[in-house]
Design a protein around this nucleic acid. Structure first.
Lengths: 142, 142
DNA sequence: CCTGAATATTTCATATTGTCAAGTAAATCG
DNA sequence: CGATTTACTTGACAATATGAAATATTCAGG
């Protein structure tokens, strides 16, 4: 239990807190530039990879399915996303990014400079070390 | 610009995204155990360090001052925080954690095991390396 | 000192996000 | 076939966020 309070560990925890805060700021800023909220940007980002059932979006974002309905409604109203029937199961609605939505998602990703520009200051060997330490910190499943 | 798209950098960026998601989950979970929202927990955490003018809280959390009014209202209703006049400027109200609020903030901090337990799996030398890499990634000001 | 601009906070209107409970439609199981 | 489960939507409500307007106070210039 020595690691729970030793100064080094506390400092790393605090640095991670700073990383989290910085990441969020950047994410919200990038989303706002496209007149999207953070939640909308997250859903659009997911759907730009592949169409997903509403249920799956809720599971991924760990929120209630009823919440996703509204977010997709707003994205759909702006023609960034569309609902399609699932041919295999008529209960399911697949949400999919439109061409316009995919374009917006790409621009959003490009705008997300956080951790990309700062990482340029690290050598390849250092980035490898950082990757390995983060992987181990996040555990096996990551 | 090679670092903007090379696989190693993208993987590190993705790992950081995972860290951010995990941190948030844990933070919300810890707050919920005390029947607090994330925003309330953040404000209470700030005020447990020192009393602050409402304006300062808004600046720190990068949101509108009118937003803070409601959050402090709810914390005050639960006697976790109190508003005091600022003797130096009668326009200002200082929000301060009560004894009960300070206790809650401490429990909250202790419950925030994220990154503390996982870090136990890293040796001291590795934690030092991680700290230095994070510091450099965050830049001089961190 | 007095007036006008600036500052700190609150209030109000409004949008988004989140939860939960209830409702509808479709699939699945016995 | 009938009962249960699953997927999604709807409605009610709380919290959070923004922006504009209102109030009180401070401050700066004349």
């Amino acid at each position: 239990m020595a690691t729970r309070t030793d100064p080094l560990t506390l400092e790393v925890v605090e640095l991670i807190g700073t990383v989290v805060a910085r990441y969020h700021e950047e994410y919200e800023r990038a989303a706002a530039e496209h007149a999207l909220t953070g939640a909308q940007a997250r859903v659009l980002g997911l759907l730009s990879l592949e169409p997903l059932p509403m249920r799956k979006i809720a599971l991924t974002l760990k929120c209630e399915p009823s919440n996703i309905t509204g977010i997709v409604d707003r994205l759909e109203a702006r023609e960034l996303v569309e609902r399609r029937p699932d041919p295999a199961d008529r209960r399911v609605k697949l949400a999919a990014a439109t061409a316009k939505g995919a374009r917006t998602a790409r621009e959003l990703r490009d705008a997300l400079d956080f951790a990309r520009e700062p990482l340029a200051g690290l050598s390849e060997a250092e980035r490898t070390t950082l990757r390995d330490l983060l992987r181990r910190m996040l555990g096996e499943e990551a």
